[in-house]
Design a protein around this nucleic acid. Structure first.
Lengths: 249, 249
DNA sequence: TTAAAAAATGCAAAAAACAGCAAAATGAAA
DNA sequence: TTTCATTTTGCTGTTTTTTGCATTTTTTAA
């Protein structure tokens, strides 16, 4: 494998999942951790990602304003967001998760819709606050530095006291067999609470995340009522998911 | 095989697979690796592909990354923020209010300080989350669209359950006689809760706000332990406040 | 504070790039 | 066809790059 190719793969992983562990990359690319470390060091020097102890994080999360930053796979995420807005009904009470896909959903919400939106994400809350006709309620808690969402017992407790019509959530990894999985234990806990607080759960995920898994499990795939990807519903990639729930173009 | 023909084959392979290895090409074309190397060198000079160690990659394979650092500085607020940081002690638990002055304070916090920071402000929370060594806890609640802070019963209740060493607050208006006043009823309520949750309250205010008042009262001036402005402590504008509490250069 | 994990550092082996040279191929003119 | 200059190609030895490993230093978390 070429060095440039390897570095491109690392960049893709970082943009896709916002953060990576050197050990994971080394294993999946079958190179030594020293090599990955050197690659990340170079990419950091080129300002392509932010190097942190043990791994790397996407620049999008370290940049101050979320508006003008590059979003990985923006086209696909806009497509997903567009589809998701068709589920929104006037007067609905919904939850919106963190992540760039959900942020794109917020930006796609038509101005004429009256909604009550709960969120654990700081960027989502800020974006929502610029929208007319939307009541925004932020769920407090300890703020995860990587993903800028509220986590911890307080956030989970607050979520336990609400019930929303729809929740729109993202995930780190999704697989038809293993369900939704994450890199981070705390994030799993908060997502579990979100799903519990929802009458219907809608998963927004770009196809690149399909058929991948990680350490910690959020829920089974059948806990999801609707899955939205940028793909055509008949796409073969979605075959494994076809036995369970709704999925929309 | 002609040179042109060989180079075209190489280009096709690059476009098809996005990457090639020199050794593979040399073997499949049955020429020496030096020849392939020379070909790739020429093609790179012609900007038809990107030559890398061990092979070549397609031009459309490179990632672009923009970075904008939009730093704007308000002289007075930076001055106030600088003064306020002298009150910060390592390990302290503090509250930081919303508003641009408090945001400036956050930006002035030295990286070596370990702090636990509560805030009701979304921008402050986001800014804090970029700081190392700081634990950020956002107070949830309904989000005020104008000031992007959490307000309402939930936020006030959450504040009632904490006690911080210092709270750094801003205000709409401040007067030696009338105390701190605001334009907005909800904001007054949340500020009352903040002051109640603080052992010490520090007011950050530019001199422009001195000696002005509005409709709703947050607290008396003596509820404030420290007042910080950009002025020299001996400035005549501060004369009316000289009978009560500390104020720092 | 201590212990574990990660990063930095130095080093050596392998692979690739480079430079120079000579043989082979090419092409033009006699 | 033959001759000769030019280009192309393959080979050799040397230099550079890359990579993994071992050791030391730093960082992190308990």
């Amino acid at each position: 494998m070429l060095k440039e190719e390897r570095q491109q793969t690392i960049l893709n992983e970082v943009e896709l999942h916002n953060r990576i562990l050197l050990t994971d990359i080394a294993e999946s690319l079958d190179v030594s951790i020293d090599t990955v470390r050197r690659d990340v060091k170079e990419l950091d020097a080129e300002n392509k990602l932010k190097r942190v102890h043990g791994g790397a994080i996407s620049l999008g999360f370290t940049n101050k304003n979320t508006r003008n930053t590059n979003i990985y796979a923006l086209e696909e995420k806009m497509k997903i967001a567009k589809k998701a807005t068709t589920l929104l009904k006037d007067g609905a009470v919904i939850f919106i998760d963190g992540g760039t896909t959900c942020l794109e959903l917020v930006r796609s919400i038509p101005d004429n819709l009256h909604l009550t939106c709960f969120t654990i994400s700081l960027p989502v809350a800020m974006e929502l606050s610029h929208k007319p006709n939307i009541t925004v309620i932020s769920i407090g808690g300890q703020v995860s530095k990587e993903s800028q969402i509220s986590i911890g017992a307080n956030a989970i407790h607050n979520l336990s006291e609400i019930k929303v019509d729809y929740s729109f959530i993202g995930t780190g990894y999704v697989d038809a067999v293993y369900g939704l999985t994450e890199f981070d234990w705390d994030i799993v806990q908060i997502k579990k609470a979100v799903i519990k607080a929802s009458k219907k759960t809608v998963l927004l995920s770009i196809s690149e995340k399909l058929n991948s898994q990680h350490r910690y499990k959020t829920c089974d795939i059948n806990a999801i009522n609707t899955m939205i990807t940028e793909l055509d519903p008949e796409d073969s990639l979605l075959g494994a998911f076809k036995s369970l729930d709704i999925r929309i173009l």
